[in-house]
Design a protein around this nucleic acid. Structure first.
Lengths: 237, 237
DNA sequence: TAGAACAAGATTGTATCCAAGTTAAGGGGC
DNA sequence: GCCCCTTAACTTGGATACAATCTTGTTCTA
C-alpha cells in the first residue's frame, strides 16, 4: 500500500468524529480504539496527536484524549473567519486568476444551473451539487495563490456540522440564491472587480453560516455528558 | 514532571527549527535526532508528526521528515492573511472589549512610550519592547472572542523569520511610527470605532511585513542544498 | 458516619524489537 | 562501456513489553 497505517487511521478517525460517531466528551481509550480500528496503539497515538493539533480532540498529559465539543458560538466564529478569508481570497484572485481557472468556475456554475433548473431539489442531485460547490470555492482559493488561506479555510472545515460536507439541501430558494451568488462572483472575478468579488463572497459565506447555525442550533443545545468509549462499542450509535 | 517527554521534545524541536538551527532541506534522521535530544524514537516521532501538521517539516511515507524551506513569498503571504485576521480581530473587538483589556492595552502603550522617549534604541530595551508588542496584539485578539483568530495568527508565527520573536530593532523612526499606530488603534477601540481600528491594524501589520521582507530578503535568497542530519552534528552551526 | 489514606487495577507514556520499505553499490548481461 | 538487475545495508513504521501515572474502591480512624 502506498499509504501508511498512521495516515489511514488519522483519516478514519477524523471522518468518524466529524460525522458525529463519537459524541463530544467521549474519552478515547487507546487500547479499545486501537482494537476497533485494527491497529496497534503506536500509529493510533500518532494519529491522535495530529487530530489534537487540528483541534478535534483535546489532550491532557497522562490522562489521554477526549473528543472535543463545539457549541454554536464556535461554529459562528468559524464562519466569521471563513467569510473574511474567502473574501480575501477573492480580492487576491481577481487580478491574477487564469483563464483556465475561470473556465473551471464557469463549468461549475453552468452545471449547477442545470441541476437547479428543475425547480425542485432532487436528493440524488445533492452529492453532485455539493461537489460543484466545493470545487468552486477551492478554485478561487487556489487562484489567490496564498497557501495559508487554503490551509486555514481547510481547518475551519474540521468542525462537526461546519464542514462543507454538511449541506442544507431542502429549501430551493436558499440554494438558488446561493448559486446566484456564484454567478455574480464569477462575473466580478472575470471583470477584475476585486472589491466586488470580496464583498459578494463575504456575504455569501456569512449567510451560509447564518443558515447553518439557524438550522443546526437545536441539535447542539443538548450538551452530552462525558462518555467513555469501550471496546464493545461499534462506534456507530 | 508535569509535562510529558513528547511535549518537551516537540517544543525544543520547534524552537530549534524556528531559530534556524536546522537548515531547510535537512533530512531529520530519527535515530540520530532521538539520541541528540536524549529520548527514544517513539516520542520523537509523535513530535515530528505534530510539527508536520504545523507545516514546519514535510513528511513522506517511508522516507521520513525533512525541514521545510520558506521563501519570501511564503512570508509575504503569511503577513497578507495576518493583516486581515488581526484587522478582523480589531473589528470584532471594538464593540465588546472590556475595561480591563483596555487598561492592559493602555499599559502596553504607556510603557512603550517610556522606552521610546529616549530617542535612541537601546539594545537592552529590545526584549521588553518586544514583549509589550506581543501582549498588545494578543490582548486585542483575545478581545475579539474568536478562538480561530488566535489559532491561525499563532500558526503564521510558525515560520522562520516571520515569527514575532524576530524584531527589526534598528531604525527608531520605524519603531516610533509602529508604536504610534498602537496609540491610534487603542484610541479607536476605546471609542468603539471598529472600521477605523481594523484599517489601522491592517496597515500596521502590512507595513511590518513589508519592512521584514525588505530586511530579510537577502538572507533567504540562497537556497540551501539538501543536507542530512547526523548524530555527530550538534544542531548549532 | 464522614473523611483520608492506602492499595489494586487500569491507562497512558516510553523503550525496545521486528518487519517492511527505501537507498545505494556491485555484478552481470548486452 | 553503459544499463539494468540483484542484493545488502540502512531507515522508517508498527507491535509488543515495561515503567510511570492516574483512578477507584476499600478499609481504617476520628
Amino acid at each position: 500500500m502506498a499509504t501508511t497505517s498512521t495516515q489511514s487511521t488519522a483519516e478514519i478517525l477524523r471522518e468518524r468524529i466529524l460525522e458525529g460517531s463519537f459524541p463530544p466528551g467521549t474519552i478515547l481509550r487507546q487500547d479499545a480504539l486501537a482494537q476497533l480500528l485494527g491497529v496497534s496503539r503506536t500509529p493510533l497515538r500518532t494519529a491522535l496527536a495530529e487530530l489534537a493539533r487540528d483541534g478535534l480532540v483535546t489532550y491532557e498529559a497522562n490522562r489521554g484524549y477526549t473528543v472535543r465539543g463545539f457549541d454554536v458560538n464556535d461554529i459562528r466564529a468559524a464562519f466569521e473567519v471563513r467569510a473574511n478569508l474567502e473574501g480575501l481570497a477573492c480580492r487576491l484572485a481577481a487580478p491574477r486568476i487564469t483563464g483556465e481557472q475561470l473556465d473551471r468556475l464557469q463549468r461549475c456554475v453552468t452545471e449547477g444551473d442545470v441541476i437547479l433548473s428543475k425547480g425542485v431539489l432532487d436528493p440524488d442531485d445533492l452529492a453532485p451539487y455539493r461537489r460543484l460547490n466545493v470545487e468552486f470555492h477551492e478554485t478561487i482559493i487556489a487562484a489567490s495563490a496564498n497557501p495559508w488561506i487554503a490551509d486555514f479555510v481547510g481547518r475551519t472545515h474540521n468542525v462537526p456540522l461546519a464542514s462543507d460536507r454538511v449541506f442544507h439541501w431542502e429549501d430551493h430558494a436558499i440554494i438558488f440564491r446561493s448559486h446566484n451568488d456564484h454567478h455574480r462572483i464569477l462575473k466580478a472575478l472575470r471583470d477584475g472587480q476585486a472589491m466586488r468579488a470580496e464583498a459578494l463572497m463575504w456575504e455569501h459565506v456569512t449567510n451560509a453560516g447564518d443558515v447553518l447555525v439557524e438550522h443546526v442550533a437545536p441539535k447542539i443545545t443538548d450538551r452530552q455528558a462525558p462518555v467513555t468509549f469501550h471496546s464493545k462499542d461499534t462506534g456507530n450509535p
